[in-house]
Amino acid sequence: MRIVAEHLSYTYNERSPFETRALDDISLTIEEGEFFGIIGHTGSGKSTFVQHLNGLIRLPSSCKHYHPKKPKRGQPVPPEPVLKVGDFDLSDRKTDFRALRKSVGMVFQYPEYQLFAETVSEDVAFGLKNFADKKSRPSEEEIKAAVRDALAAVGLDAAEVGEKSPFDLSGGQKRRVAIAGVIVTRPEVLILDEPAAGLDPLGKREIMELLHELHRTWCKTIVIVSHDMDEIAENCTRVAVFKDGTVPYISTPKELFSHAEELYALGLDIPLTAKLTAALARRGIAIDCDFTTEDFLEKVLALKKGGAS
């Protein structure tokens, strides 16, 4: 499913002293199959944007009592916002938002805090039961199989943890169960808000490996919101930078992180590999890498070999 957003705007607490403009006329496209990254400071509008993607925040035109604002005389008519996720038109009131949420999975920050059921299996099955068709409910066997597959997909064994209370698991395991509870409906798009937050280094690495595995086998498109530039450089096909409700940059990590000055000006950092590349460039050594550790090492080692021969 391709995600197309055009002229998206959103304001919190409209017409109150606390009014804040979270999104200001943003447009961006995420292609099917991408491992897309979204970066930006807290309050830059990135969470507001991703919550639009599964209809948690609705476009005004898809709400019940929508009256298009009349533009003031003499002012140009503002362009209509567009938001499409695959075939779902999110600006249309008649869109089946349940079906949309089933195909666009959303893992919030610290998802382990959404666990509630008595057993891990029950918790993972929650979404499955909610999204089940009223007429053709899945049988107990089908649910069991789906839960087992989802747990296996996040690296857990249903036979081992399925009947345990989710609150008896370790932090990393809880997070995996929470992710299983989202992917159990086999969404085509999986959105994760800072999936590695609060984990120790090993836990971080494991979660990122897990996401790559899911990308290969389970969800076609993955969108992650992250603060960690190294994480973005290592994993993402493309990145969007959010700043005060706008999107000043959308590009590949390679392109983006070669513009260190602009990112510094936005108060954002660049990955270590980009810093090293810049430091080497100042010493007259040009390295053309995509800023993954692997590619950086390869290019440096190739340079060494080239210099030696």
Binding site: L276, L280, R282, R283, G284, I285, V300, L303, K304, G307
Partner: peptide, 9 residues
């Protein structure tokens, strides 16, 4: 970066 530079050039 300095050490790398020394080594490869």
């Amino acid at each position: 970066a300095g050490e790398i530079a020394e080594c490869v050039s």
